[in-house]
Design a protein around this nucleic acid. Structure first.
Lengths: 337, 337
DNA sequence: CTGAAAGCGCTTACAG
DNA sequence: CTGAAAGCGCTTACAG
């Protein structure tokens, strides 16, 4: 039972393959193929269950209708949620997604980029690590449609979309200030990543704008420690600084560890200490009586990414393509009922 | 700057494209191409940065080296973790993955299946919904390599891999019995899914084997309610049955809701009530002083799935392909430090 | 309206 | 060892 080809359909219909192709691609009117013939061909296609070989179409048209998605780690809920929306948006306009996880590793990311180029993907959606900048610039120069997500390279002409870190931190800190907290610590991870740096900068800036000093209340923890090590580091930090009455955690998992520390120290929340986290986490819904979160609008980010990509896919890549979009985060109070 | 093709390389090397192709595919020895020539060609390939157009290779060889992965929902941590390991395994042997989420919806699943067939994927890894059985059987008859994950169709000749539900429930219940609990409730979701039915059956069977009645302690909650509704249902159930001293939640999110209910009822854990959950959840590590979990070895499931698929990819699909593999779950005690 | 032909970029028997 | 040719299954100018 060999696969049916367009020639088989043509033979059955008593026409030449081109005619079938025109019908298949909705060019029957344009090519002035009679309605009767069109219907006949459509009936045969229906009846035989024929569908075009996508590989052949790709080779001929030069378009695979596949997009490459490079995220840091698909098992991470942020990226898998992103992937979910991207999937819907992409499939709706006829694109499939090939995914891979870079692990935030430059070499792996570059390798995967090459692999997907070889695969002839039509475009890229990338959560880049800092070391991938050269390869990404090259792709951009070669007019490959691409968009960065969750990260970006400030100053470079590469489209991106991510949460507005500056604004988010500002929302969070001002929320705490408004509640009357004065000694607001900031716990972040020591990582060469634009968004972390921006969050830290924003923290300092907002405190400064309010005539408060950020000098002694900043904790930077190394990247990729074990849970216990995070918890210990935060515990030690909080123990030594009893004047702290609020903490801003720069990302959700720090918040999760921080809550553990706070519990170890028998500080109650929010009576003794107020907490704000960047990025949401399932756990915040249950863990504690009250925690404030700067929630990333992941759906919006995903939709924006696809929009920016489609723009390039359709109109071609140029410097006139809208460069970058910051999406506002949302202040959300998480309460367990 | 047009893309370089094999003909360009051939021209540069002063040979015919076939020769380049042989070198490219490691058939230089076989075709007795001189070492000198091979080296020369390789140097040119290196120098020009040429790589074969995968679409053309696919059309010619009939193999796309793409696998289709249909999961219920990529945003769900179980499936995204599965996806992560599958990715590693697949890339290591030269396959890419196209993913899609079926939402456990028969029609959507069938549609996606068709779409991926059109895309000429080489094989499928599927988390099927019950209604997809016919289409999956058809694929199997057409000798399409495929493997089911997390679900299966008992009695049908379709390879699968999933956790051993019977064994897992038995481990959990016997753990509770051993601890001296006598009135063990079972909370599950009312869904036509093999694994849920198997877990329920196992619960009844184990109780029966221990001369205990399961009649009054079984709660089946409708699928896809809102969190509050789950919590309310469980709360009501536990309130009405004060003799219950332990609960087995059939899946992790029920456990998460259950813990909320237990907290609402001011029952402490595990002093007043012991809890076991099927499937792990991040939250169990933090939420409560102690909870026992039947942890699914997701990595093993993923690796097994790839293994079963590769077997078919390489040796062809036949009824002699090993049919199904149950993977044993692990009893894990979750403690917060 | 329809047909014959070229060509997308490869791989692989076949001939020498 | 090397070369010429067919063909994977399509699409699309071109000619009539």
């Amino acid at each position: 039972m060999k696969k049916i080809s367009i020639r088989d359909i043509a033979k059955k219909a008593g026409v030449v393959p081109s005619t079938v192709s025109f019908v298949l691609n909705g060019k029957d009117k344009e090519m002035r193929i009679s309605q009767v013939l069109t219907d006949k061909i459509k009936a045969i296609i229906e009846e035989t269950g024929y569908y075009p070989n996508h590989t052949a179409v790709s080779l001929r048209t030069g378009k695979t209708k596949i997009l490459g998605m490079l995220v840091e780690d698909i098992a991470n809920v942020f990226f898998s949620t992103l992937a979910r929306t991207i999937e819907d948006e992409a499939y709706a306009i006829g694109y499939k997604i090939v995914y891979c996880s870079t692990e935030n590793n430059d070499e792996k990311g570059i390798e995967l980029l090459k692999m997907l180029c070889r695969q002839q993907v039509d475009g890229f959606m990338i959560t880049p690590s800092a070391g991938m900048v050269k390869e990404i610039q090259q792709l951009r120069e070669q007019k490959m449609p691409l968009v960065l997500m969750d990260r970006y390279f400030p100053g470079l002409d590469i489209p991106y979309t991510l949460v507005d870190n500056q604004d988010g931190v500002q929302q969070g800190i001002e929320h705490l200030l408004q509640k009357g907290y004065k000694n607001i610590a900031f716990v972040t991870v020591d990582l060469d990543q634009v968004q972390m740096k921006e969050r830290e900068r924003a923290y300092k800036q907002v405190l400064q704008a309010n005539q408060l000093s950020a000098d002694n209340n900043l904790l930077k923890i190394p990247y990729k420690l074990k849970p216990e090590q995070y918890i210990d580091a935060i515990t030690l930090f909080l123990k030594e600084r009893t004047s702290i009455d609020a903490v801003f955690f720069a990302t959700n998992y720090l918040g999760v560890y921080g809550l553990q520390s706070i519990r170890c120290l028998k500080l109650s929340i929010p009576a003794d200490i107020a907490v704000v986290c960047f990025d949401d986490h399932d756990m915040f819904r249950f863990y504690t009586p009250s925690i404030t979160v700067i929630s990333q609008p992941i759906e919006t980010i995903a939709k924006t990414a696809i929009r920016l990509l489609v723009e390039q896919l359709e109109k071609g890549v140029s410097t006139s393509n809208k460069k970058g979009v910051f999406v506002k985060g949302q202040l959300v109070l998480r309460n367990s009922t």
